[in-house]
Simulated scan of single mutants.
Amino acid sequence: MNIAPSIRPFGKHGILISFPPEISQEVHREVLAWRDAVLHSFSEKIVDVVPAYHSLAVFVNDHVNVETFIALLKDLSVSETESAITNYCITIPVCYDETFGLDLKELSEAKKMTMEQIIQKHTAPTYQVYFLGFLPGFPYLGGLDPQLFHPRKPTARSQIDQGAVAIGGGQTGIYPMACPGGWNILGKTPLVMFDPKKAIPSLVTPGDYIKFRSISLKEFETIAAKVAKRSYNIEKEVYRD
């Protein structure tokens, strides 16, 4: 696609690289290509890079002049830089039992589908992780079946469980920790999506893919016990287009 982005200062030590404002795999590939290129070419100058749907925020060290760095970015040949980042497809087990699927019945009635049909449509796609936000490790995923699009709840719950799998508008995501929230809860995963004690805290990163797998309540409990003992092997494989 090779889209020419706009590049401008973003705060005192940041640069924002912006692409056409749309949520699409094509635009996001450009975002990730620029992320890889910046990491490859300027690792000694940057503090962090933060991808989003159609933009990339780059934060530089205090001693780096932002305007000078912007000039370097404008001369950067992104297409010639090979990515050193491996993306994975991670299988996330989800229990859709009504014990956890607090809004599954309501969604079923609103969509005039059985709960089994809702689950089937939710587990069918392979979802792309566009970015992490809202909470540490909260993945914003692309690929939800349009038939499952559903507005956020008019009043947010005061507490949602860690691991809750939910739909909000045209997106689906996973709550990495307990918090208030207004998305529609379909189920729960026993996996830990964010662990600050790990060298890489988040289970998934932008550019990865997620596949949901429906599990029973008994299997949920079994996996949860293994996760607590750190003996559960995450199902993941290298993702290739």
Rank of each mutant, 00 (worst) to 15 (best):
E44N: 13
E44W: 04
S83T: 10
H150Y: 13
I118W: 09
K229G: 07
I119F: 14
V129A: 06
D62M: 13
P139G: 00
I3H: 12
P136D: 01
L104R: 06
N87A: 03
L217R: 15
L102W: 11
I234D: 08
I185S: 01
A178G: 14
A37V: 00
Y130M: 02
Y96P: 10
I23V: 15
S158M: 10
C95T: 03
P9W: 06
Y209R: 14
I215Q: 07
W34A: 05
G101C: 03
A224V: 04
F212P: 12
K218V: 12
M115N: 07
F69C: 09
I160L: 10
T91L: 07
I215L: 00
N61H: 15
M1F: 13
V64P: 05
V78Y: 01
I210P: 00
R8E: 13
I17K: 08
V238Q: 15
G181Y: 05
F69T: 02
Q128M: 08
P190C: 02
L104Q: 08
D208M: 06
Q171H: 03
S77M: 12
N61E: 15
A84N: 11
N233L: 14
Y140I: 06
S41Y: 04
I92K: 03
R29P: 01
K218H: 13
P201A: 11
D208N: 10
H13S: 14
Y53N: 05
L73M: 10
P20G: 08
L203F: 03
T68A: 15
V165R: 11
E22P: 05
I185T: 01
A57G: 15
F138W: 01
G163M: 04
A228N: 05
E109V: 15
D36A: 14
H28R: 06
M1W: 12
G137I: 00
K12C: 04
V192E: 12
H40G: 07
K226F: 08
V49Q: 00
F10A: 12
A37C: 08
I85A: 08
V78G: 02
P93D: 03
G137R: 02
G143D: 03
T99W: 10
A164K: 07
R240G: 05
F220L: 03
I23A: 12
T99P: 02
Q162H: 00
V47D: 09
P180L: 11
V78L: 06
G181C: 09
L72Y: 09
V129I: 13
T68N: 15
A199L: 14
H13N: 15
L217D: 03
L16Q: 12
G187T: 09
